[in-house]
Write a protein that binds this DNA or RNA. Structure first.
Lengths: 112, 112
DNA sequence: ATCCATTTATTCTGTTTTGTAAAATAAATA
DNA sequence: TATTTATTTTACAAAACAGAATAAATGGAT
């Protein structure tokens, strides 16, 4: 029996952003949320290819929104974490925590 | 200026194992440490290619040990995290924590 | 009313880096 | 010289990433 997979580093970051944003989770908002929390400058390509991959694996679901009445207000694609996705985040969190708990570098990260 | 990179998911796991093992961090011991803590079945190839990449980036350092007086006791290659590597683990920890803190899935992982 | 520049947004294309398994090789002892 | 512990090599799959292309909307000029 082969290994069950864990979420990649960026996949986990994106899942976190989705969970935080709830209903408001679409492209630009996700990029801004990640930038705001981590200072990371995420390219659109990086984000969407990750979202599509997560969708294919059944860890996120997408729904189409409606166009908004502002210049360029094209319809958004909103994402949310599925139950399966939630489970995967937990699995990754457990693995990471088990491995890193108690280490100074990790604790330092927890405070910041 | 492009983005500074973060450690990958498995890279972070390996760095954690090195920190835990201290002086005793070599191939088999690292694999066993990861298996023990996470249940993950790491192949030797996966481990060494990751260690070599981390070494090339200056995040770990290797030293050769001496052969041990047991059947097949070939000399081991021991690894330790460099100061730069320590910094990278912190950076990744901070990013991950900032993104995930407060989320139920993450907290659940922290307990387990 | 229609064209078109501009804006917000997603999709597509291609490349690099990371993750992985398995086979090959090496160095030791019994 | 067979067996054991260990590392190295090889080859490929998956994840991360950037940037260009495309799409769909509005606002203003004519």
């Amino acid at each position: 029996m082969p290994n069950e997979k864990f979420l990649g580093e960026f996949e986990l970051i994106v899942m976190g952003a989705l969970m935080r944003l709830g209903d408001a989770a679409y492209g630009v908002a996700i990029i801004e949320e990640i930038d705001h929390r981590t200072g990371r400058d995420v390219s659109v390509g990086a984000l969407y290819s990750t979202l599509n991959r997560l969708e294919k694996k059944g860890y996120v679901e997408a729904r189409m929104g409606e166009a908004s009445a502002v210049r360029g207000g094209r319809a958004k694609r909103f994402f949310r974490v599925t139950r399966q996705g939630q489970t995967q985040v937990e699995r990754s969190a457990i693995a990471l925590h088990s491995m890193m708990q108690g280490l100074p570098a990790w604790l330092k990260g927890a405070q910041a």
